[in-house]
Amino acid sequence: MFSSTIIIVLLIIIVVVVLSSFVTVQQGTIAVTTVFGKYQRVLFPGLNFKIPVIEKVYKRISIQNRSVELEFQAITIDQANVYFKAMLLYSVLNNQEETIKNVAFKFVDERSFMQALIRTIEGSIRGFVATKKQAEVLSLRRDITEHVKEQIDRGLEEWGYHLQDLQMNDITFDEAIMRSMAQVVASNNLKAAAENEGQALLITKTKAAEAEGNAIKIAAEAERQAAQLRGQGVALFREEVAKGMTMAAREMQQADLDTSVILFSMWTEAIKNFAENSKGNVIFLDGSSEGMDHTMKQLIAMNKLQQNNTGTGR
């Protein structure tokens, strides 16, 4: 019975030793083993064999992306308080053995690493903001991110990590500064609105002036053409009158009649036309014998001039 007990104990020991010879590493994780406290090797995801009893898993390291939120304060060169809320995204640099060793042994634990990482980032941002004015900070969001990456990437690589992204989710100031900034924005918006309204009014006035100028040009051109047509009509009228007078004078000469009668008839017709179409009530005519004599002399002179012109035309 004693021998059977020994056999059972031995079997249990063997089973325990065999089971402890295998270790499972989850996907996205790398295990680091030590022998008597000294680094031995890394174990990759899946089922791995290790030396029983003496080889132990020292640490399991996640190679997946990790994020952390930051909240801290900085002071600008003009002594304005700036409050930051940021999101940090980082991961293990790669799964190479030297990188994994750095991650496993550079810091005592994960808490010490996170404290060093956060303080490094905060110090980098505070140093950058300290050289800028309060009015510049909001427009330098991207520059702050690039500055932090340049400053801490090399240090993180020595620790075995890589900074993938740093997002400035919120940048605020003291309440008094926020109110003054809101007033500045409001006044700038009013100024821009006034400028836009002025530009719109200027465009409207310009277009109206252009339209009025075009209308004046069109009216002037129409008046010019109308005047030209009126002139042509008067010329045609005079030409027809001259032709009629010429024909009447010829007929009267053939009949041995005094052609001055034609002029006298035209003069009386003109007076008749004045009386019918004039808007006035009185027509002043020189009815004296001297006046009539003067008028007849003028008509006879015009008749002779017409006969001379007719003779020249022949």
Rank of each mutant, 00 (worst) to 15 (best):
A235E: 09
R250A: 01
T312N: 11
T206I: 04
F49S: 01
V108K: 12
S139R: 11
S187E: 13
V16D: 07
D258M: 11
R111C: 02
V35L: 13
Q134F: 08
T29P: 00
K101Q: 05
L190F: 09
I100N: 03
T120L: 03
A86M: 00
S21V: 02
I100E: 00
A80F: 11
D153Y: 14
A249S: 06
E69L: 00
T33P: 05
A192T: 14
V148W: 12
F284R: 07
L88P: 04
A208S: 13
A226M: 12
R60I: 15
E98D: 11
S288C: 06
T204R: 14
G311T: 09
V234W: 15
M1S: 12
E146P: 00
Q253I: 13
L88E: 06
T5Y: 15
K217A: 04
N309E: 12
A242L: 14
N273M: 10
T172N: 05
V184R: 08
G155N: 13
R314T: 08
S91Q: 11
Q79K: 15
I75N: 12
G160E: 10
A192R: 13
E223T: 12
E210V: 10
E71Q: 11
A215V: 09
I144P: 01
I171E: 10
N189S: 11
M245G: 04
V234Y: 15
R41H: 09
A176N: 13
V137F: 11
N303D: 14
E69V: 01
G213N: 07
Y58K: 08
L163F: 00
T24Y: 12
K59Y: 03
V241F: 13
T24S: 12
L190S: 03
V129D: 04
I30L: 07
I121L: 06
A104C: 15
R142D: 07
G198D: 08
V57K: 08
G123E: 10
E122I: 01
L88W: 11
I6D: 08
A176E: 10
T99P: 02
A255R: 09
L201N: 06
T310F: 09
G313I: 14
S20W: 13
A222K: 14
V282L: 02
E146T: 15
Q183N: 10
M292A: 02
E175I: 07
I77L: 07
S62Y: 09
G244L: 14
W267P: 05
Q40S: 15
V108C: 04
S187R: 12
R230S: 02
K279N: 14
L11A: 00
S4F: 06
A242G: 11
E240H: 09
R230Y: 11
I12Q: 12
Q79W: 15
L202R: 14
S260F: 13
D143K: 06
I216F: 01
Q73D: 01
I61T: 01
T99C: 06
